[in-house]
Amino acid sequence: MNIFGIGLPEMAIILVIALLVFGPKKLPEIGRSLGKTLRSFQEASKDFETEFKREAEAMEKSVQMQAQLESEKSKTPPDAHG
């Protein structure tokens, strides 16, 4: 188990220090708020990724349409209408 480059022994030391600093009553509350923060960060990250993909697809479609229009424009001779 390796989270953010921190192994199990380091996590245990951090937990013991947090327990000593905050006390047993405050520690679950801090854990819940940390969990909520991480969850909201993940949701924001997913939203950003989804929006980024949507914009990239829209831009790709726009470029394809523009290329198709230019291709059609170059196929028609200039004196064909007249």
Rank of each mutant, 00 (worst) to 15 (best):
M1R: 09
N2K: 11
F4W: 10
F4H: 10
F4I: 07
G5V: 03
I6T: 10
E10F: 02
M11R: 07
M11K: 09
M11P: 00
L15H: 01
L15F: 01
L15A: 08
A18N: 04
A18P: 00
L19E: 11
L20M: 09
F22S: 06
F22P: 00
G23H: 01
G23C: 02
G23R: 00
P24C: 09
K25H: 02
K26P: 00
K26F: 02
L27S: 01
L27Y: 01
L27C: 00
I30T: 01
I30N: 01
I30L: 06
G31E: 08
R32F: 08
G35F: 06
K36L: 12
K36E: 15
T37E: 09
L38R: 04
R39M: 10
Q42H: 13
E43H: 08
E43F: 08
S45R: 13
K46V: 13
K46I: 13
D47T: 11
D47K: 14
D47Q: 15
F48L: 12
E49C: 05
T50M: 13
E55M: 10
E57D: 14
M59F: 10
E60T: 10
E60I: 04
K61Y: 07
S62F: 08
Q64I: 11
Q64P: 00
Q64G: 02
M65H: 07
M65N: 13
M65A: 11
Q66M: 07
Q66R: 13
Q66Y: 04
A67L: 13
A67M: 11
Q68I: 08
Q68Y: 13
L69E: 08
K73A: 15
T76H: 07
P77C: 04
P77R: 07
P78F: 09
P78H: 09
D79V: 09
D79P: 02
A80H: 15
H81Y: 15
G82M: 11
G82P: 05
G82N: 12
G82C: 10
